[in-house]
Design a binder for these strands. Structure first.
Lengths: 152, 152
DNA sequence: AATGAAATGTAGCCTAGGTTACAAATTAAA
DNA sequence: TTTAATTTGTAACCTAGGCTACATTTCATT
């Protein structure tokens, strides 16, 4: 049985349709995973700061549904990335960069939820799907959502 | 400086609005990450089998934009999960479960892309966003997309 | 001021997914 | 049949994000 259907020139790449575009899409997707977490955290920190006056590790853990250990390690990474300021045994604060990111996320989340609801998706489900979708909506698509919302 | 704004009864949880709903959303989101990868792989395997006659590790690696090592390890996991059949140095085949999953993904992907384009999003961007969004679209939302598409 | 519960931190282990470097198998072609 | 390129496999390492178990710090309440 032939190993492969087509012939190949020795020493040459078979040029199996690398389809750079799609490859890049998937690469971008994986790269974005780290950013998603950052967004979820800064959003939660901003929210907790507003509603409770300050954001503590336990609160974040409850809010995100993980243990305080995970929160701790992630906060260290976010601090390295310049999104938060933390001191041992103290409340967590967003840096200006963190605040900006949080606000962007909040608005985008709101737009996605509103858009889904405008299509007749139930509130609970709209909220649920938005949580996942919001991280993958490009500015262009977000604009399209807003345009559509304006039409009603 | 007070550790926390509100008083607490010793030994009692402060009931910081666990908001089980949102916690569950986020938990579900993380759980789904493993499934996403499976979906990307079976989709790619199905596609390669159609276009090339068989799916090989190198092709998958090129298609997914990762090294063959990553593909190998992931395939082992997918085999454990019952989605693919592999033998050393041989082509990769989908199990019935894998084929079903692939077909579902293909259709859903197509719906999401069509929907985005119907909103005026450019083809390239629609394709790009769909790659990320499709994994987070519930059946209800997918139905809403299809309903909307039918209206045109 | 002492104390005990809650909060925070740390050590160590797990899976998933990514990598490079190197070894072994396969197969097209000389 | 031999050979050499390609493909596949394996070892070892990295980050991210989960976890449990245990140690330490804070602070509200005696």
């Amino acid at each position: 049985m032939p190993r492969r259907i087509k012939k190949t020139v020795p020493g040459r790449k078979p040029a199996v349709r690398p389809s750079s575009q799609q490859v890049e899409n998937l690469r971008r997707l994986r790269r974005d995973r780290a950013v998603e977490t950052a967004q979820d955290y800064v959003e939660a920190i901003a929210d907790l700061t507003t509603t409770l006056g300050e954001a503590r590790v336990v609160d974040l853990a409850r809010r995100l549904g993980v243990t305080h250990v995970t929160v701790n390690r992630t906060l260290a990474r976010l601090q390295r990335a310049g999104y938060v300021n933390t001191k041992p045994y103290r409340a967590i604060f967003l840096t200006p960069a963190g605040s900006t990111l949080a606000e962007e996320c909040r608005q985008r989340h709101q737009t996605v939820v509103s858009f889904l609801r405008s299509l007749g998706v139930a509130d609970k489900i709209a909220e649920m799907d938005a949580e996942g979708i919001e991280h993958h909506v490009s500015p262009e698509t977000l604009a399209a959502f807003e345009r559509q919302l304006g039409k009603r």
